[in-house]
Amino acid sequence: MTRTPLLEVDHLTMRFGGLIAVNDISFTAYDREITAIIGPNGAGKTTVFNCLTGFYNAPVGRLRLTGARGEFLLERMDGFRIAQKAGVARTFQNIRLFPRMTVLENLIVAQHNKLMAASGYTVAGLFGLRSYREAEREAIDLARSWLDRLGLTAQADWEAGNLPYGSQRRLEIARAMCTKPVLLCLDEPAAGLNPRESAELRELLTEIRDRHRIGVLLIEHDMSVVMGISDHIVVLDYGRLIADGTPAEVRSDPAVIRAYLGEEETDQIPPEVARDLRQEGRA
């Protein structure tokens, strides 16, 4: 199988004041593959996501998405247009459902742009035209297929905020999928899940890759998920890319081991620091 590049990240850099959160990162995520971004806390993983989905505007770098909907330069687009036009959907580290709307409504809101056009930007919908009613039925069918897949059909009319935590996580993924994306970005989807739920999640993600045939970009700390389902892993540490390869390659990479387990004490003071110290001593 030939790999088609879906997202090409080139020299992405993001600064917050004096802090360089993401420093000159380049990698490629392929279509119909699960690409995991891992790294210790504060490595800049979520910042990459936020640049990608338009929440931050990166000053340096290029984010090129070549998907079924065409070619887009994400760094130049507004946040909501990235989801609307380019087809990048995401979930959040701390779940962001619409808690006081029902489970079904959450999935219908995700299909807003399609329904908005079908409702003639509200005018046709106000008069209950047939075309709008059909579009709404299709939207419900799509939502229903996801509810059936997640086993949440019985809870469809519950307020989303009342669902158990694990179901909320899965509902957020289903909501993102209801936007019919070409790239799905998941920010720590397994956080707080028990081992059984985490196994279910692995199954769901491989199914999204294989049946819905889209690319998945994943930030995760749970190594059973990362190593079990990823086709490709990118490792960040202190905003730099330190490794990029298959799970097996990454697992045996000395730089990755050092980043996760810490360096051995044999390491001397870094040369530049030593030089600064000498200069200070002289002054």
């Binding site: 946040g79 909501f80 609307q84 936007t179």
Partner: peptide, 16 residues
Amino acid sequence: EALREDEIACRALGIN
């Protein structure tokens, strides 16, 4: 209503 609940999530779903 979605905007009332969570504006950031709205943007991530492509709502203007």
